[in-house]
Amino acid sequence: MEEVGANGRPGTVYFFGTCLVDLFFPEAGLAGIELLRREGLRVVYPQAQTCCGQPAFNCGYRDEALSVARAQVALFPEPWPVVVPSGSCAGMIRTHYPELFAGEPDEAAARGLAGRVHELTEFLVDVLHVSLVDRGEPVKVTWHASCHAMREAGVAAQPKALLAQLANVELVPLGRERECCGFGGTFSVREPEISAAMVEDKAADVAATGAALVLSGDGGCLLNVGGALERQGSRARPRHVAEFLLERTRGR
């Protein structure tokens, strides 16, 4: 890694915001950037970025996915780490870019990118070893583990480790935590009845925790679970973990 500062930290990182964060949770993206900046990092946000290509890839439209993915690969030429506020998109780049680009002229670049992509909480914990000081009022939250964060990106312990650093935050375990919320991208509209049954159960499990907030690191899950909570008239609100972490620790 270039520009590695003292204690093994990189000096500059790229931020890949993802399309869902861009359009639906920009504050979470900004919070992610701020969390990195206040650790002394220079954060670069290439303005030409759009989407990792996952929606088309998962639907079996590889050519379309490749052409959108290709446009991203070109935007991160420096060997800096690329931080993504989504386990799903980080998993897409890390796990699936190498096969998507197999045999393509830019395969090496895609593999290079795949090798330096980090989900945000993973980066904060495993690379930056951040320590957080809670400045908020006592609050009860629960954690929704996104399937792709857990299973594609391998991120499960890190967000909880961050939350555990916050003294006034009580993390209530979510029932059936490892079960999918039913989002699944196009699945939610192709099989709306099944998706609905899944998210209704998930929202009920969230409500049962009595938590004020359901936190997650993935925008798709937040839209899905949040929408169902709102429809059910639940008091629990969805919040992206980046936004929550920044709120709790602001003013340090």
Partner: peptide, 29 residues
């Protein structure tokens, strides 16, 4: 319609992260 059968409709933010990042002076390269 499928989406809103059990969820409220997703509401896009008023400004995108691209815009907010430009505003906050987050460098592009």
């Amino acid at each position: 319609r499928a989406w809103t059968s059990v969820r409220t409709a997703p509401r896009p933010a008023r400004r995108s992260l691209h815009e907010l990042a430009r505003e906050k002076g987050v460098p592009d390269a």
